[in-house]
Design a protein around this nucleic acid. Structure first.
Ligand SMILES: [Zn+2]
Length: 238
DNA sequence: CGGCTTTGACCAGCGC
DNA sequence: GCGCTGGTCAAAGCCG
């Protein structure tokens, strides 16, 4: 039941009428594939974050309900107490040369070790906004399928993603914050899906924005497609 | 020159 | 204590 609303599948069915040049069409198709792949990953991410959030919430409830006077709490060995950890796997093909992952943030590599039960090394990254942002991640190829990268993220960013030359954002991702609920409406009116979970929608939105604005041409094409679709829809309504 | 990668050293936890 | 292993530091080097 919970995962009902966690379905950000923006199936836009963007059939851009007749695109005059085929080369960029294929290019767009490739990028669409890439983005849908990323969308899948983000889906997993949202799910993982949701479970993390529920776990954390339960933990906080327990903590606030029963505050044991035992202040002899040791410096928590499990430093992952507050930092949520989530792992994801992404398929990578031609970029087998480098282990740089484009996920919207900028990372600084600070280590690489070989692990025991995996022939491929593991790379350690820290967010470039350190130390203000404590996010870390590890990236390692899968043991069997070396074309699959397994990334383990730890913590959450406390800054905006470095959207390179952040221009005016396309209007279809509009955050209308009311009270404590954020609605992310990328559909025509009446189809607005509202959720009460602020954090995940925010993260989803910022990830979407970062991934979309990374390629301005694609964002433009998408925006035009959506606006065309909205216009068509509105016309059909009237 | 500044930020990043590379890469060996270093350290902490753990099992023996 | 010793050695193994995963995680981090930092010096050196690379690159725009
Ligand atoms: Zn960050």
């Amino acid at each position: 039941m919970d995962s009902e609303w966690i379905n950000p599948s923006l199936s836009l069915d963007l059939s851009i009428g007749r695109s005059p040049d085929q080369a960029s069409n294929g290019d767009l198709e490739a990028k669409l594939n890439e983005l849908s792949e990323e969308n899948k990953r983000l889906n997993e991410m949202v799910k993982a974050m949701y479970s993390n959030h529920t776990a954390l919430h339960h933990q906080l409830m327990d903590l606030t309900n029963s505050v044991p006077p035992a202040k002899k709490r040791k410096r928590m060995r499990m430093s992952a107490n507050m930092t949520s950890i989530y792992t994801t796997s992404m398929r990578i093909d031609a970029s087998s040369s480098r282990l740089v992952v484009r996920d919207g943030y900028q990372w600084r590599k600070y280590g690489q070790k070989v692990t025991k039960d995996n022939p491929s090394p593991r790379a350690y990254f820290r967010c470039s906004f350190a130390p203000s942002c404590p996010v870390k991640k590890k990236v390692q190829r899968s043991a069997e399928d070396s074309s699959v990268l397994i990334a383990t993220y730890e913590g959450e960013h406390n800054h905006d993603p470095p959207t390179t030359e952040n221009e005016s954002l396309p209007c279809f991702v509009s955050l209308s914050s009311s009270d404590s609920a954020v609605a992310l409406d990328l559909r025509p009116r009446g189809f607005r899906s509202e959720v009460e979970c602020v954090e995940f929608q925010r993260i989803l939105a910022e990830k979407m924005v970062s991934s979309l604005t990374r390629d301005p041409s694609f964002a433009e094409a998408l925006a035009s497609a959506i606006s065309g679709r909205m216009f068509q829809h509105l016309q059909a309504q009237s």
